[in-house]
Amino acid sequence: MSAQGSGAFEQTLRTEGVLFYRIEGVSMQPMLRQKRDAVVVRPPQGRLKKYDVALYRRDSGKYVLHRVVRVLPDRYVIRGDNCFSDETDITDREIIGVLTDFVRKGRQKPVTAPSYRLYTRLWVGLYPVRRFLHVCKGFLTEGLWVHLSGRRTKK
C-alpha cells in the first residue's frame, strides 16, 4: 500500500486536517483492494496503538499504509495485512497519519466498527498460521518448479 510523494500528503493533512485517497498496492489486502478502495487518514493524536493502520513515509520518500502489530517504547513493529515481513524501525517521527475510515463500494466504514475490530484481531492473531501456510505454499511451488524445470540432480 504505497505511493511516491514529495510531501503532498503532509501538506494536505496540515491544510485540510484530513487526507482522502484511493490506495495503490496489494500489501493491505484483503482489507483494502488496489485502486478500488479509498482511505481516510487523519493526523495521529498521541502514540499509535496496536491494530492502528499507520501512514508513514520511508526515507526513500515512499508513503506506506501498514498496520501496527506491536508498540515498543521508542518505535513500532509494522506489517501490511498481506505481507510476511515486519518493519521494526518506524518511529513516531515517520508517522504522518492514522487510518480512521475506509470506503468500499461507496460505503464508508469507520475503524471503530465492531466487524472491523473483529477482523483486525483475527487477522493479526492468525498471523503465525497464515505465515506457516505461506511458507508451505512457497515450498510446494518452489519444489514443483525445480521438478518441472529439470533442475533436480540426477543420480
Partner: peptide, 11 residues
C-alpha cells in the same frame, strides 16, 4: 471516483 463525508464535509 470515490466520495466520503468527513465531519459534515464531502470529499
Amino acid at each position: 471516483f470515490q466520495t466520503v463525508e468527513i465531519d459534515g464535509k464531502r470529499y
